[in-house]
Design a protein around this nucleic acid. Structure first.
Length: 1156
RNA sequence: GCGCACGUAGCUCAGUUGGUUAGAGCGCGUCGCUGAUAACGACGAGGUCCGUGGUUCGAAUCCACGCGUGCGCACCA
C-alpha cells in the first residue's frame, strides 16, 4: 500500500535523513561488495589539500568524480574509490609560518626544524572536518577511511622507490642552472609554481651607456628593466645580421650605437632627433670591448686575457658578442648580459666559455647572494635587497653620466605563489632535475592516446605544454616535503639513491637513527611517519662504499610536492613495497577529472612519472607498455566563477538579486568574476546544501552546461534547478501516491514471492499487471519514451557526456509530467477501483517512476533514494537502496519510433490549438464545437483520427476534423528539400526555389497526389521531383482563428451556441467549487452540499442543465440553485461566500456532509 | 608576444557531417489551467549568431584576417 507523501517537502532535510540511512546501512560498502569480482572501473582521486577550506569549485570536481563511478557501479563494474590527501609542500609551510609570524628560512631554522615539521604535520589536517563534511554532504561516495596521505611513510617510500629508479637510470641529476629563485624562502620553484605567480608590475626601465674601450667617445646603449643586474654585467649582445647605427645625440657629445631600425623610436622617446652617422651590421660590432657601468669586477679582471681553443687569445669579459635571441622588438637592439640572472644570458656565458681553453674562459660574475641581497662584491650596495637597489643604482648611473634615459615599464613578473609580496629572481643554483626532456616524444605519444574531454585539450593545451617541456626542477631547499633519497659520499662526492627505509637501515655502518628514537621517546604522540622526514632522516648516515672511512650523508633537499601527487597511481598502495596486487589491478585509471588548472599540475605530473617509469624507454623501438597510462579518460573541468550583485560604487555586495533589490531598489549591477575570499562573493557549499540541497547543486552542475565550460556559481540558477527538474519529478511522484492511496493500489505487493530490483520481469507476476502491448496507447507511448531515454542515457554516459544524459532525463520527466500524467488524470479518477484501464495507468506510472529513480540515481542520488524507498516500501527481498540496482538499459520497453513521432504530432496539435484559442481570446474552459486540423502529409492521419478524444479533451472541443488535402484554412508553399537536392541539382537550387515558390502550392500538391511526382522546367531542363525532394509548408489563411506549425495548421470554429455557453458556465462553476473545496481544506474524498444563489435565471439554467456533471466532478451529493431578486444576494452567515461566475455575482454555500 | 578556448535573445547556455522559419531555461509582458500547488501551461516581445572578407547553389556552422573575453605558456634582456 502506498501512502500519500507530504506536499511540503523539504529537500535538504530529506537529504540529511538519507545520509543517515546510507551511513547506518553501509550502503556504499554494499554497492562495492555487490560488484566484487566484476570488471573494474578504475578511478583515481586527485588529492586535495586539506589545509584550506573547501569552496564551491571543489564541489564541481567532487560531483563529477562521484557521478561516473556511481554510474559505472550501477552498470555492473567494481569501482573502488580511494580518497587521498595532498599534504606536503610550500603551502603548508607558509600556513605554519603565518601562524608563527615568521617568514624567512633563518627564522624557521631559529624556531627549529623539528618543531616546525611537527607543526606542518598537524596543520595539514586543519580543515579535514570541513572537507569530510562537504564530501559526505554532497553525496560523494569515496572511502575516506582508507585515504592515501602523501606524508605517510609508505607513500614516501613509494616515491623514493620511483626516484631511485630514475636515479639509477641517470635521469635524476644535479645541475647548475639558472632557476627561478624565491630568495626569502631560499628555494627554487618549478615552472608550474612560477606560472601561478605572474602579476603585472611597473618596473624602472633604464637605457645605459657602455663606453667603448678603444673609442671612449662612443658608447653602446643597452636597455634593462632590472637595474640591479648591472653590477654583474659581463657581456653586451648584438645580432650579427641586425644593422646598427652610430648616431649623434644633440645633448651629448658622445656617439651612440643602437639598432638602426630603432633610432627613430628612441629619438621620439627622448624627444630629440638622433642623427645617423654610419650604419654597420652587428657582426662588425662583435669583439668590441666596453667599460661596464660598475668597476667592482672590472677593476680586478678587466684586462684578463684567456687562450682560445682555436689558438690566439681574447679578453674574457666585457666584449660585444653575438646572440641569436637578440631582436629589435624592444630596447635598443643591444642586450646587457648578466649571466647570473638570466637563463639565456647564462647560455651565452657557457657558449663563450666553450671557446676558451680549459680554465681560461670567463667565470660567472655574481654580486648577489642567495638571500637576494648584494654581497661584499658590490660594497656600495652590500646587504641591500636587489629590488631596493634599483633606485640607488639609477641615481648612481645618472650622477656618473651613464644613464641616457629612464622610464617606467609595465610588464608581468613572477612572484612567489605563496608569498605574493616576494618577487622571484633568476639565480644560479645547484638543483636536482629530472630529465623529462628525454621523454618528450614518449609523453606526446602517451598523451595522444588519452581520451580528453573536451578533446582539444590533448593536441591543444596539454600537447603544447608537453612540446615545450623542460627538465623538471625537482628539488626544494625546504623542510616539509618528501626528502630527496640521495646520499652522497663526503670524500668522493659519489652518490647513491635509496628506495626504502629498510634499505637504508640495512646499510653498513648505519648511524643516526637514535635521533628519531629519542624524539619519539620524548614525545610518544609523534607520528611514526615523521621518521622518514627532515630533520630525522638527515641524521641517518652510513659507511661510504666509495672511499674507506668516509660516510654517506643525505643531500639536504626535499622534493616538489607535485611529484608526490603525480606518483599517486602507485604510491597510494605503497607499491612496490606493498600493494602489488592492488596496483596491478588498479592501473591505469579509466577515469579522472580535475579542473583545467591541473594541466601543468596533476595531469602533467602523473603523465610524466608514469611515462618515465612504466612507458617506452628512450631508444627502445618496441612498445612495452600499452599507452595511455596512468589514465585513459580525463574530463577537464572549466573554472568556476562567482556571480554577485553590488552597488554602483561597489561598496555593498549581495549574493542574490532579491537581496540586492530589497536593499538598493534597482540601483545595483550584476557582476561575474573570479571567486574571491576577500570579496566574499560566493556562498559556502554548506549554506547551499542547507538552503537548496545537494541534489539541487548537483543537478545544476551537471545539467546546465558541458562540464568543461566555465560555470557561474549562481545561487539563483542552483535554486532554479529545483522547480525545473527535482520538484517536477517529485510532484509526479506525489500525484501517484495521492491516488494510489485513495484507490488502495496494491502495486508490487500483489506479487507473492520475494522481489529484487523491480524490473519488468518481476512486475509482470502481479495479477493486475498487464503486458504493455495490451495497454492503452498513452501507456505504450510513455514506456516507449522511457525505453528510449534509458538507451540514450546509457549511450551518452558511456562516452562521458553527462550533459547530454541530463537533457534526455529532463525531457522525459517533462513528457511524463506534462503529457502522460496530464492526459491520464481522468483515468486515475475513475470510480471503479478495479477498472483495468485505471490499473494500467497506475502500473505504467509506477514502473516509470521506478525506472526513473534508477536513471537519476548517479545524478541526484538523494532524490533517487527517496523515490526508491517510497516505491518499494514494505516489499520483501527488494534491494535496500536504488544505488544497489542495475542501471536500466531500456530492454524492457522497445522504442516505438512511429508512436513517439505520432504522439509528438498530437502534442503539437494540442499546443497549436491552445495558441489559436489564445489568439481569439477563447479560454480553454469554454467548449467549442469544432476544430479543423490540416496536415502537410497524410502519413499519420488515421492514427490521429483514432486518438481524437485526447485532442478533444485537451482543447475542450466537441468535434475534430483532420484533412491533408486542400483546405479552406491554409495556403501551401512548396520548397525544395535542400539537403536532398543540393548534391543533385547544385547551382540550379536557387532557381528551383523561385519556380516552386511562384507556382500555386495547391496545384503542386494536387499534381503530387495524382501522379506521385512534380515536373518543373528550369533553363530548358526538365526536372522530376518526387515526394522526398520537396518540403511542403502550410500557413494559416488570414481571417481564421488558426495557428500554424511546421507541418500542420489548427483552425478553430469560434461560433458559440447557447448550449456551448451553458457548458462553459458549468465548467467555470466546477473550477470555482473545486477551488472552494481546496480553500476549505476538504479531504479529497469529502462529500459536500452546495447552495448557489444568483440573480440570473440564465446562469441558473446553465447550472441546472449540467447538474450531473457538476455534482460528479465536485463530489456534491446535494446541489441547489436558487434565483433570487436583484440586490438580495448577501452572505447568509456560515459557510457562504460571494464569488463571480460568468460575469455575475453569486453566493455559494458549501457544507461538508461526510467523509466517506 | 605565442598558444588554446570562447563570442548566439536582457541573463545563463544548446545548436548534430554546412541545408534556407536559429532553439531551451530564467527574466519580462499577456493570458490560461489547477483536487500534483515551493506548482503548472500557452502565447508574446526580444537576435547584425562579434566584425570584415572568402569558399559554396546554400554559412551561426568551413577558411583567412581583425576585434573582444577567459585561461595557459613565456619573456621582455
Amino acid at each position: 500500500m502506498f501512502r500519500a507523501v507530504k506536499t511540503d517537502i523539504k529537500f535538504p532535510k530529506q537529504e540529511e535523513s538519507i545520509l543517515k540511512f546510507w551511513k547506518d546501512n553501509d550502503i556504499y560498502k554494499k554497492s562495492l561488495s555487490l560488484r566484487q569480482g566484476s570488471p573494474p572501473f578504475v578511478f583515481f582521486e586527485g588529492p586535495p589539500t586539506a589545509n584550506g577550506l573547501p569552496h564551491p569549485g571543489h564541489c564541481l570536481t567532487r560531483a563529477i568524480k562521484d557521478l561516473f563511478p556511481r554510474y559505472r557501479t550501477m552498470r555492473g563494474y567494481w569501482c573502488n574509490r580511494k580518497a587521498g590527501w595532498d599534504t606536503h609542500g610550500l603551502p603548508v609551510e607558509v600556513e605554519v609560518c603565518k601562524e608563527l609570524g615568521i617568514h624567512s628560512k633563518e627564522e624557521i631554522e631559529k624556531f627549529g626544524v623539528e618543531p616546525f615539521i611537527a607543526k606542518c604535520q598537524q596543520s595539514v589536517w586543519r580543515y579535514m572536518q570541513e572537507w569530510e563534511r562537504v564530501t559526505e554532504r554532497l553525496g560523494f561516495w569515496i572511502d575516506l577511511s582508507e585515504a592515501y596521505v602523501t606524508y605517510h611513510q609508505s607513500y614516501v617510500e613509494s616515491v623514493w622507490w620511483s626516484l631511485k629508479n630514475l636515479f639509477d637510470r641517470g635521469l635524476l641529476y644535479r645541475g647548475h642552472k639558472i632557476v627561478w629563485w624565491w630568495a626569502q624562502g631560499g628555494t627554487a620553484l618549478s615552472s608550474g609554481e612560477v606560472g601561478q605567480g605572474y602579476r603585472e608590475v611597473a618596473d624602472p626601465s633604464v637605457y645605459v651607456r657602455f663606453p667603448l674601450v678603444d673609442q671612449p667617445d662612443t658608447s653602446l646603449v643597452v636597455w634593462t628593466t632590472t637595474p640591479w643586474t648591472l653590477p654583474s654585467n659581463q657581456f653586451a649582445a648584438v645580432h650579427d645580421s641586425i644593422q646598427y647605427a652610430y648616431c649623434s645625440d644633440p645633448e651629448s657629445k658622445d656617439t651612440l650605437i643602437v639598432a638602426a631600425d630603432l633610432v627613430k623610436t628612441l629619438g621620439e622617446k627622448i624627444k630629440r632627433e638622433l642623427t645617423v652617422l654610419k650604419t654597420v651590421p652587428g657582426s662588425q660590432l662583435v669583439g668590441l670591448r666596453y667599460r661596464p657601468p660598475y668597476d667592482y669586477y672590472h677593476s680586478k679582471i678587466g684586462s684578463r686575457i684567456g687562450d682560445l681553443k682555436a689558438g690566439g687569445s681574447l679578453h674574457t669579459d666585457w666584449r660585444v658578442v653575438h646572440a641569436d635571441f637578440v631582436t629589435i622588438d624592444s630596447g635598443t637592439g643591444i642586450v646587457h648580459l648578466a649571466p647570473a640572472f638570466g637563463e639565456v644570458d647564462y647560455e651565452v656565458l657557457i657558449a663563450q666559455r666553450e671557446l676558451f681553453a680549459d680554465g681560461h674562459g670567463p667565470s660567472l660574475i655574481c654580486a648577489v647572494g642567495p638571500d637576494g641581497k648584494f654581497t661584499d662584491q658590490a660594497p656600495d650596495y652590500q646587504g641591500v635587497w636587489v629590488k631596493d637597489a634599483d633606485r640607488p643604482i639609477s641615481r648612481s648611473l645618472r650622477e656618473r653620466g651613464l644613464l641616457w634615459h629612464q622610464e617606467q615599464y609595465v610588464h608581468d613578473y613572477p612572484f612567489c605563489w605563496r608569498a605574493s609580496e616576494d618577487p622571484l629572481i633568476q639565480y644560479p643554483r645547484e638543483s636536482w632535475f629530472i630529465r623529462t626532456t628525454a621523454f618528450r616524444d614518449a609523453m606526446l605519444e602517451n598523451n595522444s592516446k588519452i581520451g580528453w574531454l573536451p578533446d582539444h585539450i590533448g593536441p591543444g593545451r596539454f600537447g603544447n605544454f608537453l612540446e615545450s617541456n623542460v627538465d623538471w626542477a625537482l628539488s626544494r631547499e625546504r623542510y616539509w616535503g618528501t626528502p630527496l633519497p640521495v646520499w652522497v659520499c663526503q670524500s668522493t662526492g659519489k652518490m647513491e639513491s635509496i628506495g626504502s627505509y629498510d634499505e637504508l637501515l640495512a646499510k653498513k655502518g648505519l648511524q643516526g637513527t637514535q635521533v628519531w628514537e629519542k624524539a619519539k621517546a620524548a614525545n610518544p604522540d609523534l607520528a611514526e611517519d615523521l621518521k622518514v622526514h627532515k630533520p630525522y632522516i638527515d641524521a641517518v648516515t652510513y659507511e661510504s662504499p666509495f672511499a674507506p672511512g668516509a660516510r654517506m650523508h643525505r643531500v639536504s633537499e626535499v622534493i616538489d610536492c607535485w611529484y608526490d601527487s603525480g606518483a599517486m597511481p602507485f604510491a597510494q598502495w605503497g607499491y612496490p613495497h606493498a600493494g602489488k596486487e592492488n596496483f596491478e589491478s588498479q592501473f591505469p585509471a579509466d577515469f579522472i577529472s580535475e579542473a583545467i588548472d591541473q594541466t601543468r599540475g596533476w595531469f602533467y605530473s602523473q603523465l610524466a612519472i608514469s611515462t618515465m617509469l612504466f612507458g617506452q624507454q628512450p631508444g627502445q623501438t618496441q612498445t612495452q607498455s600499452q599507452y595511455p597510462h596512468p589514465f585513459k579518460n580525463c574530463i577537464v573541468l572549466g573554472l568556476m566563477l562567482a556571480e554577485w550583485y553590488e552597488s554602483k560604487d561597489g561598496k555593498q555586495r549581495f549574493l542574490t538579486e532579491e537581496d540586492a533589490r530589497s536593499a538598493m531598489g534597482s540601483d545595483f549591477v550584476q557582476k561575474t568574476g573570479k571567486m574571491s575570499k576577500q570579496l566574499r562573493n560566493y556562498r559556502s557549499p554548506q549554506e547551499i546544501f542547507d538552503r537548496y540541497g545537494a541534489d539541487a547543486l548537483r543537478w545544476y552542475l551537471f545539467a546546465n552546461q558541458a562540464p568543461w565550460n566555465s560555470i557561474l556559481y549562481s545561487e539563483r540558477a542552483i535554486r532554479d534547478s529545483i522547480p525545473e527538474f527535482i520538484l517536477r519529478l517529485w510532484n509526479v511522484f506525489s500525484f501517484f501516491t495521492i491516488y494510489a492511496e485513495i484507490d488502495g493500489f496494491a502495486g508490487p505487493s500483489e506479487i507473492p514471492g520475494p522481489m529484487d530490483q523491480l524490473d519488468a520481469k518481476e512486475l509482470e507476476q502481479a495479477k493486475t499487471y498487464r503486458p504493455v502491448s495490451k495497454r492503452s496507447e498513452l501507456d505504450r507511448w510513455i514506456l516507449s519514451e522511457l525505453g528510449t531515454t534509458c538507451r540514450d542515457a546509457v549511450e551518452k554516459m558511456d562516452r562521458y557526456d553527462s550533459y547530454g544524459a541530463c537533457e534526455s532525463l529532463h525531457a522525459f520527466v517533462d513528457a511524463l509530467s506534462n503529457w502522460y500524467v496530464r492526459r491520464s488524470r481522468a483515468r486515475y479518477w475513475a470510480s471503479d477501483k478495479q477498472d483495468q484501464d485505471k490499473l494500467d495507468a497506475y502500473w505504467t506510472l509506477y514502473e516509470s517512476l521506478v525506472v526513473i529513480s534508477k536513471l537519476i540515481a548517479p545524478f541526484t542520488p538523494f532524490l533517487a533514494e527517496s523515490l526508491w524507498g517510497h516505491l518499494t516500501q514494505g516489499l520483501t527481498g527488494v534491494r535496500q537502496s536504488v544505488h544497489l540496482c542495475d542501471y536500466p538499459n531500456g530492454g524492457f520497453a522497445p522504442s516505438d519510433k512511429v508512436l513517439n513521432e505520432r504522439m509528438g504530432l498530437l502534442r503539437q496539435i494540442a499546443s497549436l490549438g491552445r495558441s489559436a484559442r489564445m489568439e481569439s481570446k477563447l479560454k480553454v474552459r469554454q467548449p467549442l464545437s469544432r476544430v479543423e486540423v490540416t496536415l502537410a502529409s497524410d502519413a499519420h492521419i488515421d492514427w490521429l483520427r483514432s486518438h481524437d478524444d485526447i485532442v478533444r479533451e485537451e482543447l475542450n472541443v466537441k468535434e475534430i476534423h483532420y484533412t491533408s488535402g486542400s483546405s479552406p484554412f491554409v495556403t501551401y508553399s512548396v520548397q525544395p528539400n535542400f539537403r536532398k537536392l543540393g548534391p543533385r541539382v547544385g547551382q540550379m537550387l536557387p532557381k528551383l526555389k523561385t519556380v516552386l515558390a511562384a507556382a500555386s502550392g495547391a496545384n503542386l500538391m494536387d499534381q503530387m497526389s495524382r501522379t506521385g511526382k512534380i515536373l518543373v522546367v528550369i533553363d530548358g531542363k526538365e526536372l522530376e521531383l518526387d515526394g522526398e525532394d520537396i518540403q511542403v509548408r502550410l500557413s494559416a489563411k488570414e481571417g481564421w482563428a488558426a495557428a500554424q506549425g511546421k507541418s500542420c495548421v489548427v483552425a478553430l470554429n469560434t461560433e458559440l451556441t447557447p448550449e456551448l455557453i451553458r457548458d462553459g458556465i458549468a465548467k467555470d462553476a466546477i473550477r470555482l467549487i473545486q477551488d472552494l473545496r481546496k480553500r476549505r481544506r476538504c479531504n479529497y474524498t469529502d462529500r459536500i452540499k452546495i447552495s448557489i444563489f444568483t440573480t440570473s435565471s440564465q446562469l441558473a439554467e446553465a447550472l441546472n442543465t449540467n447538474l450531473g456533471l457538476i455534482q460528479s466532478e465536485t463530489l456534491a451529493t446535494d446541489f441547489a440553485v436558487a434565483v433570487v431578486p436583484q440586490g438580495s444576494i448577501e452572505i447568509k452567515g456560515g459557510v457562504c461566500e460571494l464569488v463571480e461566475l460568468a460575469d455575475e455575482q453569486i453566493a455559494v454555500g458549501l457544507d461538508v456532509i461526510s467523509d466517506s
